[in-house]
C-alpha cells in the first residue's frame, strides 16, 4: 500500500470523534459467553435512563445448559485440592483489583469494589480451613477410626440480590465456590455480572464452575428450583415472598438444600460460616483399627 495514502487516512481518523466499541453482554455458561438460545435480549439503561446495552435474556433452556455445564465441572472442582481452590479464588480477587475501573465505570461505588475484593480474599483463605473448623475426628466407643469432613452439595442455583450488585454477586458466588460447589447465578444486573464473568474467565476458574444467567428470576428460577440435578437453591435475591414460597416448594420435590437469609442483610458485615455451610454435606467415614 502506498505510504502517502496511509498518512491521509490516519489524519482523517484523528480528526473525527472516536466511536466507542461497545461490549455485547451475553450469558456466561461453561466458561464461554453464548447468546441466549432463545435469541432474546432486553434493554439495559444506566441510572439516567439512557440505553446502554441489549443484555441476553436467559431462558429455561439456557438454565438447562447451565446445569449441564455446572454438573460437568463439579467433579474436577470439588476434587481440586483446597489449596488450589484457594489460589483460584485469590486469583479472582487479583483480577478484580486490576479491573476495578471497569466496575466503577458501571456505577459500582469504589468502596463496594474494595469490599468485594476483600470478600474474595476472605473466602480464598477459607478453602483449606473449613474442614478443620466444621469437621474432625469423632471419639466413637469402639476400635474405629471415625472422621467427619465437609463436602460440597453439588450444583447450587442462586438468585443474586439486585443490590449491591457487585458485592451481592461476590457474596453469593464465592462461598459456594469456596466449598467446592459449582454455581448457577441468576441476576438482573447484567453489566456488572458479565463484567465479573470476564474477571472469572481470566482467573483460572475452570469453565462451568460459575455460570451466569442474566434476565428474570421469576422466569428462570422455577426451572432451576424444580431441576432434579440441582442440589441447592439460594433465595438471597428473591424479594417477592410469593415467588420465594413457590421456589421453595418446588425445591422440596427433590429435597434441595434451600437457603433463605433473613431480609435486611448487612452486606458489609462478617458473613459468618452460614453461607458456606448451607451447601455442605457432612461425610463420616468409619474404619476399624486392628493389627
Amino acid at each position: 500500500m502506498p505510504a502517502k495514502k496511509k498518512e491521509s487516512a490516519d489524519s482523517a481518523v484523528a480528526t473525527a470523534p472516536r466511536l466507542a466499541v461497545r461490549k455485547t453482554y451475553k450469558l456466561f455458561i461453561g466458561g464461554a459467553f453464548p447468546r441466549s438460545e432463545s435469541g432474546r435480549t432486553y434493554v439495559v439503561a444506566d441510572s439516567k435512563g439512557q440505553f446502554v446495552a441489549n443484555a441476553a435474556q436467559a431462558s429455561r433452556k439456557d438454565a438447562r445448559d447451565a446445569v449441564l455445564a455446572a454438573r460437568a465441572a463439579f467433579g474436577k472442582w470439588s476434587g481440586a485440592t483446597a489449596y488450589n481452590k484457594g489460589q483460584v479464588i485469590y486469583r479472582v480477587a487479583e483480577m478484580l483489583e486490576g479491573r476495578r475501573d471497569e466496575f466503577t465505570a458501571l456505577e459500582v461505588p469504589a468502596s463496594e469494589v474494595d469490599e468485594a475484593i476483600d470478600r474474595l480474599v476472605w473466602y480464598a483463605g477459607w478453602t483449606d480451613k473449613l474442614a478443620q473448623v466444621v469437621g474432625g475426628a469423632n471419639p466413637v466407643a469402639g476400635p474405629y477410626f471415625n472422621i467427619s469432613s465437609p463436602e460440597p452439595s453439588g450444583v447450587v442455583a442462586v438468585v443474586a440480590p439486585s443490590q449491591p450488585t457487585l458485592l451481592g454477586l461476590v457474596s453469593v458466588i464465592a462461598p459456594a465456590m469456596a466449598t467446592g460447589n459449582t454455581v448457577i447465578v441468576i441476576t438482573d444486573a447484567p453489566r456488572v455480572a458479565i463484567t465479573l464473568a470476564e474477571v472469572l474467565a481470566t482467573s483460572d476458574v475452570p469453565g462451568g464452575v460459575v455460570n451466569i444467567l442474566t434476565g428474570s428470576a421469576a422466569e428462570v428460577a422455577p426451572w432451576l428450583a424444580s431441576h432434579s440435578d440441582v442440589n441447592g437453591l439460594d433465595l438471597t435475591g428473591v424479594a417477592d415472598t410469593k415467588l420465594a414460597l413457590e421456589l421453595e416448594q418446588a425445591a422440596a420435590e427433590t429435597l434441595k438444600r434451600v437457603r433463605r437469609p433473613a431480609a435486611g442483610l448487612d452486606w458489609t458485615a462478617d458473613p459468618g460460616l452460614a453461607p458456606m455451610t448451607a451447601y455442605l454435606e457432612t461425610k463420616t467415614v468409619w474404619h476399624p483399627k486392628g493389627l
Partner: peptide, 10 residues
Amino acid sequence: DPTSPFGGYK
C-alpha cells in the same frame, strides 16, 4: 455412635 454424625446427601 452418639459422637458420630449421621445423615444423607441428596
